[in-house]
């Protein structure tokens, strides 16, 4: 090695020596790890808190069958309280289902238009507008449901009450659409242009290109957008509280008033004594909502993985 120039010897040592850059790299890795882990810790912490508050009820008086199959929710009855959430589940599910019927065509249509057809100024304007819509507070949507949709539904369909599944479903659908549009558009934009070029080069029309090439390639992102909308529907509270009519009902038609799981917690938690059965059963509903969201996300994850493998 004596014949080697000095620089080479110095270089050789450098590979085997940890310099400032190396330590900074390790430090950043540790910080990022802490950041990533803390998100998980917070979620686990919240779940633990909710579980703790609702746990006494689950242990002592929880009747699985009553809880999930009885439509009677009279938690405030002093003599014989009943804790059946079937009507609440039906309320949430019917509103969310209708909302998705509204939101999916609207949001995917808008996303396809913005990503594939619009250009220049039109496109930029639309994107800004969509993002603006996504920022409207939910209480404002609830207000629209209460003061505009309500009389409109009464007049159009000749029904006594306009605060019902239809009202809340449309409001919730319009509410979820912008954010779903945003995610779906990102997914479409992420499809490389060479896919479009390759398909167009074979004589495919624009719609054929979109239908046969772009949409399948963006499948994961689009599914993510839809599931985000479903999650939003289950979790939304204020607009649903205002637009559903907030009365306990097994919905027979879209013109029935219903009550949602989330709205029940929001409306009743403030009026219960801390630690009482009523208080604890509301937390049990919280656990249930938590689990539903978890299952939705898990399903989305498994589907996406399945798509990747296939």
């Amino acid at each position: 090695m004596s014949g080697q120039p000095m620089t080479k010897t110095a270089d050789m040592a450098a590979f085997d020596r940890r310099n400032a850059d190396w330590y900074i790299d390790k430090l950043v890795q540790v910080l990022v790890f802490i950041g990533g882990i803390s998100a998980i810790i917070f979620v686990v912490g919240i779940f633990a808190f909710v579980t703790k508050e609702g746990f006494g009820f689950i242990l002592d008086r929880f009747d699985f069958q009553e809880f999930f199959t009885s439509p009677y929710w009279y938690p405030a009855d002093e003599d014989a309280p009943e804790y059946g959430i079937l009507a609440l589940i039906a309320g949430t599910a019917s509103v969310t289902g209708l909302a998705m019927l509204v939101a999916i065509p609207f949001s995917l249509g808008t996303a396809v238009y913005i990503a594939e057809f619009a250009s220049g100024k039109t496109r930029e304007t639309l994107k800004v507008l969509v993002e603006l819509l996504a920022a409207i507070p939910s209480v404002v949507w609830g207000f629209i449901g209460l003061s505009i949709m309500n009389p409109l539904i009464i007049e159009l369909f000749d029904v006594p009450v306009g605060l019902n599944v239809l009202n809340a479903g449309i409001i919730l659908g319009l509410m979820a659409a912008p954010i779903m549009t945003s995610i779906a558009e990102d997914a479409l934009k992420a499809v490389p242009d060479r896919y479009r070029e390759a398909a167009e080069a074979m004589g495919a029309t624009r719609w054929q290109v979109i239908y046969k090439t772009v949409l399948p390639a963006a499948k994961n992102g689009l599914l993510g957008a839809v599931l985000l909308g479903v999650g939003r529907g289950f979790g939304e509270t204020m607009a649903v509280l205002m637009a559903t009519g907030h009365s306990i009902n097994m919905p027979g038609s879209v013109f029935d008033s219903v009550r949602a799981l989330t709205a029940t917690i929001a409306a009743e938690l403030g009026e219960t004594a801390v630690g009482s059965d009523h208080y604890q059963v509301l937390f049990t509903i919280g656990i249930f909502l938590f689990l539903i969201t978890f299952v939705i996300n898990l399903t989305a994850d498994l589907i996406v993985r399945g798509i990747r493998k296939g």
Binding site: D16, R18, W22
Partner: peptide, 8 residues
Amino acid sequence: HLKNVYAL
């Protein structure tokens, strides 16, 4: 076995 792969 180098300690600093970035330098390598």
